[in-house]
């Protein structure tokens, strides 16, 4: 560390890259820090996380408590984001809803990326008929507009009249997740196709490793970078999808707040209480924008060919 500081600035990066002591994660982190919008995105995301977890916890207001004396109050010092038609404080409600929206985003990403990675790696690794079959299946999923299918699935769940299947976040996570895996599958397949003929895979084969081991231990770690980037972007996309479904009335059902159903609630009154529509949407915008910038920064930071 001491030696590095004495070097002229122009050579620091070069030496840092050659330095065997610097771990991969340290290198990625250092490069990530150079991407200013991504750092700002990370800071914003951390702030949103903290607000989501601490605001509903620390305030003495109950986000679901109604109060007929303060119906549709515009933003003021007492209620900085205003109140809604039942006199609920929108500032607290926003962060309470953010918990569910972010939870749905992250959980959906895990479902989508897992399915996509499994399908993509099997298709790319085995190739031939298996690949053809799985990719035609991917085309098939992509040919029906996603929102139409989501609405249909949501309607299907609702018609069961079972509150566990029609109101909470879990069914929403499952239906968004099982439709959102296609980009990840194509991406992972591409990675596997280009990596499977590399020397290190040949070497692993020679040493007698089984297919499963080669896929999980040799190829997948090398394909991790684009998957991490795709996963980051997927969280944002899932938050938007949840909000759209909830907005159309087929997402998480009230009184549980999410950013989407707060907007649904705002639609009827936005002409005379525009703040009810503005703040939940801004929360989605800032969160997703932060995630997209982080994804962009990670893409640069994880790219081995990236020139600093």
């Amino acid at each position: 560390m001491q030696a590095q500081l004495t070097l002229p600035p122009s050579t620091i990066d070069w030496h840092a890259r050659m330095r065997p002591q610097e771990s991969l994660s340290a290198l990625v982190w250092r490069r990530f820090l150079k991407h200013k919008p991504a750092v700002a995105g990370l800071a914003a995301l951390i702030a949103i996380f903290l607000l989501c977890f601490f605001v509903p916890w620390l305030t003495h207001y109950d986000p679901g408590k109604t109060n007929v004396d303060i119906i549709r109050e515009p933003p003021s010092l007492a209620h900085i984001f205003g109140t809604d038609e039942l006199g609920r404080d929108l500032f607290i409600r926003l962060w309470d809803g953010g918990r569910i929206s972010i939870l749905i985003g992250v959980a959906t990403m895990i479902v989508a990326i897992t399915i996509g990675t499994v399908i993509g790696s099997v298709a790319g690794f085995y190739g031939g008929r298996v690949d053809n079959l799985l990719m035609r299946f991917t085309d098939f999923v992509l040919s029906i507009p996603q929102l139409f299918l989501l609405l249909l699935f949501a309607q299907l769940l609702r018609s069961t009249n079972d509150p566990r299947l029609s109101a909470g976040p879990l069914p929403i996570i499952v239906i968004i997740g099982i439709l959102a895996w296609t980009p990840a599958a194509r991406l992972v397949r591409g990675q596997f196709l280009s990596l499977k003929n590399k020397e290190f895979v040949e070497a692993a084969k020679m040493s007698g490793a089984r297919n499963r081991r080669i896929m999980l231990r040799h190829i997948l770690p090398n394909a991790a970078s684009p998957i991490i980037v795709a996963a980051t972007l997927r969280v944002g996309a899932a938050i938007i999808t949840e909000s759209t479904l909830s907005f159309l009335g087929f997402g998480v059902q009230p009184p549980t707040p999410t950013w989407g159903n707060m907007l649904k609630n705002a639609q009827a009154q936005m002409t005379y209480a525009p703040w009810t529509a503005i703040f939940p949407g801004l929360a989605i915008l800032v969160t997703v924008l932060a995630l997209n910038y982080i994804g962009d920064g990670l893409r640069d930071a994880l790219d081995p060919h990236h020139v600093e």
Partner: peptide, 23 residues
């Protein structure tokens, strides 16, 4: 371009209505 990709379509619609229809 980034902002356009980061917001729900319907929210942008609502904001346009608030601005150009009601305000």
């Amino acid at each position: 371009a980034f902002i356009g990709q980061s917001m729900p379509v319907f929210w942008f619609g609502l904001i346009l209505i608030i601005i150009f229809h009601t305000t």
